[in-house]
Design a protein around this nucleic acid. Structure first.
Lengths: 207, 207, 207, 207
DNA sequence: CATGAATGAGTGTTCATTCAT
DNA sequence: CATGAATGAACACTCATTCAT
């Protein structure tokens, strides 16, 4: 009995520390970007030696990928736990997804994902590991878009690929960053307008 | 009289070289990204010494800023030279602008702007220098958006800031990159669908 | 009575483990060389914690020295247990020694000694600890060389030191490695030729 | 005329510096071995910045290879410039080669070659670059060994490969290091004895 | 003005060694 | 006694920037 407890204590501490590292790494990446985030700085901010960092993540890449993946997992889980009923419209379902993506109060999550997503270096990592979670999220959205088309909610003349691409580009929280940060709009306000635009835009046209 | 002429000759050569540097720098950035573009490589490709590069641009940042600015200038000029007549709808005018942004056959221009716009390092520079041209382009778009509202083309209930932000996010050529590169759509096809979505989305609703 | 037994049991276990460590260390060194053998890997292969390794050997050097010494001890013992009769020629005795050095079928032993003997790092250790066993082995060879001289087998005009040095350089199994590995000669073949050369070379000249 | 002179001046300085780097690198390698020789230390001892080192040699490997190759070239050249006449015996020719290999008063050259030759890391480099010079030297020796066989000087029953391997192992200056350094023998003395052993050993046996 | 050699701070990563548990 | 997490010095290599010529 003793050993398991002991182990799980250590394991718990390990996970806590790993969590801390991920948190710090996120902060630094948010401040400085992927390239300018050095393992040195992360270690220093966490308050551990550089070598210790490498005990948790064998490469800088892995660390970055870890928190990217974690965020994607969070999103995917939230999406999968969404209460979807038959009578809900496709639009309502997609709006729930948008809400999840924007939920993070500080907007950190979205920024982070965006930074990584567009980092020249990270893209390579991403391709190599071909993140499954990413695909599953986008498949979910695609499924709802197609559902909307068959239900007669959305315009069937626009290819689903293009709808998907548009969904992520307009509704991406990053896209409208400036509005919150500099222009004083609330997230809610922006979100509701942008959704309005998108869903009107893709709505099935009265024949 | 002599000296000025001499000077202006030199000045002309200087400008020609500067132009060449900017061209080369663009190519390299397109190939390798901001961070992986080294001053060495630019100098080598231009065929001048590295020191000479620094005679034209005191920092790497400045060089990058310069060609960013130049592209923006090109776009601004094209926008300003657009043949706009009174009877043209606001939508038609905005579509012309979108065309300009996408015109560049290879998509080079758009890629370039996007790379810089999202480069971790360059963002800082951009904020510091607060590019005037950028503002003037966006002012132009904003003006047309507002014109559309007053003309009854666009929904007056959506704040212009949000329309603007949406305009740039959906219509950005970069947003839909994957569709050309991996999914086999043509630029034209994507563009026309995305425009349809956007303009329908912002259209004034029948009361 | 109890405690000593207990102790000796523990002591026995300790020695067994030490033996195991030495075995594993040898294998790794043979595979990867001195420098690329990490304490981590040895510990992992033995199945103990890294800290435990340091309970047995305070430094990496010491561990390496230990198995070097052990091999030398093995060789020395084998040499000392050689059945030497009065009527055996000095040459026959020396040939037995050569056989011992080459006996190890796989050539492991010889490779190992050579690796350590020529390892940049290890040489320092070797000098500091000035391995006694090494000297005893070479003393044995020297004794036979001198015996050969007095018996009239070997040329008395060549200083024994030089004979000794030559003995180890020509007859070293490592010296002819390439011949086995790349040229397809058998160990036996090479050995017999090389011995022929050496013993003819040092034979007393007919006056 | 001016530019060429200028260039050749710069070029001369460059070569001088490169020479200095090679010298220093040799010294450090002799002191510490391949692995423990750091680029930092070489730079510091030369009195230049680390970056400057990399201006001359793009990798540590290249620097090491450069002076290895240089030494081999020196030896090869000396061998090729040897005055060989028809009536010279094969043995005489081979002795000249041995003399060249031992000529270096301090024995530095030989040590250096040996260190590199047996460095775990450098071997890889050597294999990749498959040093031509090395092969040409050994081909020269092999040619003389075979000449000796056909002339009836050397024992035709021993495969030339084995003769070659023995030649380099017995006659290698490194093999007998200890004798000079610790036992007080002169190079000349050792050399002459060792040659005697080798050439007697390989001599054709009276039938 | 043009050059390009020189700089040196900075990067990710490794690994022998220590020590609290 | 055994553990293995933590350390931190060390390494090869890069590149924007400077400056003597």
């Amino acid at each position: 009995m003793k050993v398991p407890e002991h182990r799980s204590l250590k394991e718990k501490q390990r996970l806590e520390r790993e969590e801390l590292i991920l948190q710090v790494a996120q902060d630094v990446v948010l401040e400085k970007g992927y390239r300018d985030t050095s393992m040195d700085e992360i270690a220093a901010r966490v308050g551990i030696a550089k070598g210790t960092l490498y005990l948790h993540f064998a490469r800088k890449e892995d660390l970055m990928l870890a928190f990217f993946e974690r965020e994607m997992q969070n999103i995917l889980q939230a999406i999968e736990q969404l209460p979807v009923t038959e009578e809900m419209s496709a639009r309502a379902k997609l709006e729930s997804i948008v809400n999840i993506m924007h939920k993070d109060a500080s907007g950190k999550r979205a920024n982070l994902l965006f930074i990584l997503f567009n980092s020249e270096d990270f893209k390579i990592t991403l391709q190599q590991k071909s993140l499954d979670t990413l695909r599953r999220i986008s498949d979910k959205v695609r499924a709802y878009l197609e559902e909307g088309k068959t239900r007669g909610e959305f315009d069937p003349n626009i290819p689903t690929d293009i709808l998907l691409s548009s969904f992520f580009s307009v509704l991406s929280p990053r896209a409208h960053r400036r509005l919150f940060l500099e222009e004083g709009y609330t997230r809610q306000e922006v979100l509701s307008c942008v959704q309005k635009i998108f869903f009107r835009g893709i709505a099935k046209q009265p024949s």
